[in-house]
């Protein structure tokens, strides 16, 4: 058995395949057991090399190349990746162009719609929630044939059955007690196209509903802490 001190050095010398030099060589000459251990180690590496050599340098079967050639004939010509790549790139470019074109068209439509509506003096429709959203009867107006035509949100908006995207007019939820007033406001807006006229033509009693009552604060009673006790 080799000396423990030289064990690793012996193994590395055998693994590298280089003849030992210097101190190790001198020790091997003096120590029989280390010399025997080194020889065994060299035999181990020689066995490994022989096994590897036998594994990888096995005789190549004669059938290998004919079979490969036959399969190459079946496979046909190699794929022209240059052409393939160009087709893929062209397809990708078309997809990207179509995508951005669709986006551009969509944006253009969104921009043009408000402008067109402004040109038509767009008036927002006012509709109570969950009720007859198409017809809002104005103030002091009875539903009869002689009365002025009631304001209808349908005048400026598509019919109920139309697709939702065509109904571009915003709808406003209003308190029920202000429904009549705001309907009148909208009607005035529709007729005169000027907001200040509403105040002149509207009934003062209706406008009074918009006034906010002053805050009522009771007089504060101040008591000392001692009195409280």
């Amino acid at each position: 058995m080799p000396c423990k001190h030289y064990k690793d050095t012996l193994i590395e010398a055998a693994a590298s395949g280089v003849e030992p030099e210097g101190e190790l060589r001198a020790h091997l000459e003096a120590c029989d057991s280390c010399r025997a251990g080194f020889a065994e180690e060299q035999n181990l590496f020689a066995s490994i090399d022989a096994g590897l050599h036998a594994t990888v340098n096995a005789k190549v079967p004669v059938s290998l190349l004919p079979r490969v050639r036959a399969r190459l004939d079946e496979a046909g010509a190699p794929r022209n990746s240059w052409v393939t790549n160009r087709l893929v790139l062209a397809s990708a470019a078309v997809v990207v162009v179509v995508f951005f074109a669709a986006r551009a068209v969509q944006h253009t439509n969104v921009r043009h719609q408000p402008v067109e509506m402004a040109g038509k003096t767009y008036v927002p429709s006012l509709a109570p929630p969950l009720q007859n959203q198409n017809t809002i009867v104005g103030p002091r107006v009875e539903r009869n044939s002689n009365s002025p035509r009631p304001f209808t949100s349908a005048e400026n908006s598509p019919s109920v059955g139309a697709p939702a995207r065509k109904n571009t007019e915003p709808e406003v939820l209003v308190p029920r007690d202000q429904e009549v007033l705001l309907a009148a406001y909208a009607e005035q807006w529709n007729l005169h196209k000027r907001a200040p006229l509403i105040a002149q033509d509207s009934n003062a009693t209706i406008l009074a509903q918009l006034r906010i009552a002053p805050i009522q604060i009771d007089e504060l009673g101040v008591k000392l802490l001692a009195e409280e006790k």
Binding site: A14, E40, E41
Partner: peptide, 22 residues
């Protein structure tokens, strides 16, 4: 190559039964 051979030797040494330290 050096480390590969060394690792192989470590695994095969017990079978070859070569180096034993005293």
């Amino acid at each position: 190559i050096f480390y590969a051979r060394k690792q192989l030797a470590e695994k095969l040494r017990c079978h070859a039964n070569t180096i034993k330290t005293r």
